[in-house]
Nucleic acid binder design. Sequence first.
DNA 1: TGTGGATCTTGTT
DNA 2: AACAAGATCCACA
Length: 163
Amino acid sequence: MKKLQQFEYGFGMSEFGGYLLVMTRGKIASLYFFTSEVSRDEILAEMMTRWQASFVYSPKKIDAIQLFEEGKSFEFFLSGTDFQRKVWAELRKVKRGEVVSYEEIAQRIGKPKAVRAVGTAIGRNEIAFLIPCHRVVRKSGGLGGFRWGLEVKKKMLEWEKIA
DNA sequence: TGTGGATCTTGTT
DNA sequence: AACAAGATCCACA
C-alpha cells in the first residue's frame, strides 16, 4: 500500500485575477489562474488530474502566503522530463522587467532548433508567475500564448512595466 | 495577412 | 513504432 503524498490547496485574489495555489511539504507545486473564461472549478479539476495525490482544502494556510511581494523566494516541487526541467530552469533566470523570445530560450538550453518544443514545455510549467512563463514572447513582437489566457499574461507584463 | 514547411518533444494509440 | 499536436519561426505570395 503506497501512501499518496498530501497536497494542500486554497484560492486567492491578485492583481492578475483569482488563483489556485497548491503546496506539498512546504513547497509550491502549482499556481494556476482563473478568469471569466475559465472557472475556478475547472482549473481545480485540471490540477487534480495533473497530480497523483490526495488533496486537502487548507484555506487559512494558503491565505497566509504572500506570493507577489518583491524579493520573495520559494521552494518548488517540480516534476517533468529532462527537457522540461532545463526549460524551466532557464525561465527562472529571466528577471523581472525582462522579456525574451521562445527562440532565445531554445538557444540558451543548447537546442536552437527546438523552438516549438520549448513553447509547449513552457506551457506545461505548473507555477505561473513565480516561474516567469509570462516573460517569454514571440520574436516577431507578438505576445505568443498563455495557458491561463492572454489577458492574464498582458496584465502581468504591464504590471512589470514592460508593455 | 495568410499559408505551408522545417523542426523537436510529448502523449496517445 | 507511428502519429498528431503544440504558448515558434521563416519564406514567399
